[in-house]
Write a protein that binds this DNA or RNA. Structure first.
Lengths: 143, 143
DNA sequence: TATTGTTATACTCTATAACTATA
DNA sequence: TATAGTTATAGAGTATAACAATA
């Protein structure tokens, strides 16, 4: 009836394994926090990248998310259907420039606040310094 | 042409976001390292949990991976088809007990070695102490 | 009644391949 | 030739709902 299984000795020292397991907890909490918005945590990540990089191209978004262009296409379609993101003509005649709509900006802010509140519950084991250290180290992984 | 998009200010302080982005890097490297094995990183995680918890039930594996029983069913089927995992009668007449096969143990060890080598490349930015700290903090997230 | 496994079905996410239009 | 976007199709991975056997 335990919720946990013991980890394998050797794999326990892999950062990738630890990230995967920790991600399960956080992703579950994030999905619950976003249930009223109809967006997955991954879609909010994409939305936030557009918000921080106004005018970025779909292909740049795809590379940032490690997905291909066809997948990014569908992703942007959904965000557009929700009225969160807008496609405008880009510098090239072939490329799109992506922007958050006013509604997208507002709703992204609200979703991030909900995610932050959910995280505080999941991360109750960590004090502020530990949490800051964790964020710093994870950022270093990305290079 | 940059591989990265700048992160959103507020979301940048969410551990869940950092885990997701760091996970992209590590997962991509892990998938490459496992390409010859025909297994995804997630399947190796499942395999390692069976290895560390011999005789565990499918339902326990499902809970540990935050998936439901039907999904765990398919997962174990695949691991069984690869000759890595074996279903034996459990304590209940209704439950299965999961075990690694001898081949499964051997191949899991080899895969973990390959994953560790791949990680050393991705995590070149972190020294040993930082890596150990990261693993410790991620373990604390899981509770 | 609740739980374990199972099956069938559908949905989400992603990849591949081919096409177009631009560069 | 190479790139950005698009489309159609297929493959993982997961969820839901139902069922049988057992507890």
């Amino acid at each position: 009836m335990t919720k946990k299984l013991a980890p394998h000795d050797k794999i326990n020292s892999l950062v990738g394994f630890q990230i995967q397991m920790a991600g399960l907890c956080l992703n579950e909490a994030a999905r619950t926090a976003l249930s009223a918005d109809g967006l997955s945590p991954a879609k909010v990540t994409a939305l936030s990248l557009v918000g921080a990089n106004p005018g970025c191209e779909q292909s740049a978004l795809a590379r940032a998310l490690s997905i291909n262009r066809a997948s990014a296409m569908k992703l942007v379609n959904v965000l557009e259907d929700h009225g969160l993101v807008e496609r405008r003509p880009g510098r090239d005649l072939r490329s799109n420039a992506l922007y958050l709509t006013p509604s997208g900006k507002h709703r992204l802010d609200a979703m991030i606040d909900r995610l932050a509140a959910a995280e505080r519950v999941v991360l109750a084991n960590l004090d502020d310094a530990e949490r800051a250290m964790l964020i710093r180290l994870l950022g270093r992984v990305r290079g």
